[in-house]
Design a protein around this nucleic acid. Sequence first.
DNA 1: AGTTAAACCTGGTTGC
DNA 2: TGCAACCAGGTTTAAC
Length: 285
Amino acid sequence: MPELPEVEVTRAALAPTLAGASVLLLRLGKPLRWPLGCPPQALAGWRLGAMQRRAKYLWLPMAPPGSADAVDATVPGAGPGLLWHLGMSGALQIAPDGPTGAHDHVELHTTAGLLRLTDPRRFGAVVWTDGTPGGAVDRLLAGLGPEPFDAALTPQRFHAALAAKRTPVKAALLAGDLVVGAGNIYACEALFIAGIHPATPCRRLGPARAQRLLAAVRQVLGAAIAAGGSTLRDYRDPHGSAGAYQAQRLVYDREGLPCTRCGTTVRRRVMAQRSTYFCPGCQHG
DNA sequence: AGTTAAACCTGGTTGC
DNA sequence: TGCAACCAGGTTTAAC
């Protein structure tokens, strides 16, 4: 479900609320994708810093009870904290006090309110680390590609990364090796905007098309963040609102409809195990 | 080494 | 109406 834009919208809404608060109680429901990694009661009294994002992960830096100093905004995984992932159907909300729902599998009671992770499919996770290198959090963060809005990711570097791969470009985008953040919706959209056929082998993309693809990824992710993300089904921002970007989709879920650019019928093909929507008329291999 | 399938889980929609 | 089959925003792990 949530791709980078939805995760970023969630982060932006939660960070100001949670920063400076303290943990009162952590309650777990049904098991999620990965175990928490510590006894939930061990987190009582820990203080929270400003939530950050890396790829589709959220990082909540924490500090032990005691000191009154502000919690350092550590690089994700570098100090103590909780790493969150929304999986396919997860949403985080600061909930008003109310009954725990059937799909509320993590409830972090804090001095700033109750943070709930609602995740029907339970592909999401919350993982604790004390900051010791080599743990579960480190392993999850290791090997992630560059952030899409990192200035260090130049068109030249992006092209060089493409040139080293022979997989279909759609699969490479989903894998996050070239750039993180684009999931199935935004990978389809970015390839459409760039006019590139999703089955094109990465190495076939020259400097000009590489530059166009990187710009398209940035454009679609940026526009989706500005629109509050996409809500196909489950996604809600921390205020409970749905995203609006799905109304701006150009190809995703438009199988059989005319291409918004050239009128050719949009097709759907399963690639990298995911439904891939593209226009055979104006996306070239 | 690099690419592809299977697995995790629930619920909504589609088709017979 | 009932039920089976298929589909869904992600990522790890095991298998060719």
